[in-house]
Amino acid sequence: MKSGSRLERVLEAGHFAFTGELGPPQGANVEAIRKKASHLKGITDAVNITDNQTAVVRMASWAAALVAIQEGLEPNYQMVCRDRNRIAMQSDILGASAHGIRNMLCLSGDHQQFGNHPSTKGVFDIDSIQLIHMVKGMRDDKKFLNGDEIDGSPQIFIGAAANPFAEPFEWRVHRLAKKISAGADFIQTQCIYDMKLFREWMKQANDMGLTEKVHILAGVTPLKSGGMARYMATNVSGIIIPQEIIDRVANAPKGKAAEEGIKICVEQIEELKEIKGVHGIHLMAIEWEHRVPEIAERAKLIPRPQV
């Protein structure tokens, strides 16, 4: 075992994994985390704790991850390259491991321009692939990035993101390969709506033998309304939502759009389960944590295996 995390044990035992997401509050409101956590406990193998997502200031992801642990969740600690240099990153990784955080997702991060401090100085000292490589070096070689010995290496199951839906499409599988050779143990993908494109990407990954080396968790996000579907399709870079999916949610009878969104999400999960090389689902129910138990049940993702 690399980290001994529940997520690692589930995946290594060959079970189909299920991860969720919890966005920390824009403040020190611990109760907000506890409330969100209550919907996810016992349902998910691990929960991603986002790191100042969309570059909006929130409670530190490691701190919210510790609250999640208190609430009986296993956190997947997200870290972006936008806000900290290699010194702060390595120091935070050691601290996270010391406090029992065992999974980490290494990301570049949304550009600061999108957030609530758009004129801040972006750090980007290292990029997400270099971050993955650094964590692996810290864990396996017991060395800091500069080669110095570590006194007590961090035990971290290393995650990375992949987006099959951003251009250049033909390069995306190679970027996945780079993340794997950098040291990624598992991958969580961008929200999948375009199943055809996703299948193509998975086929490439299978053909290149990449799915033998890494656990891919397929990302899904339930659409709450036609407005949300249209907004995401036009304004969020790197997300493709086919028109028929937008139409299904947008044309649902009044008051039934959310139900249609969940129905689509459950169908997607069922379909994803059958794709070779997909080892789990990563459900990003944005500010919709309370609907996760229902989705998990309808998609037959619970009960979770004992490992």
Partner: peptide, 12 residues
């Protein structure tokens, strides 16, 4: 983002 192993997932 001055990435050295890009492109990131945000390419539109």
């Amino acid at each position: 983002k001055s990435l050295f192993n890009g492109p990131c997932g945000g390419t539109a």
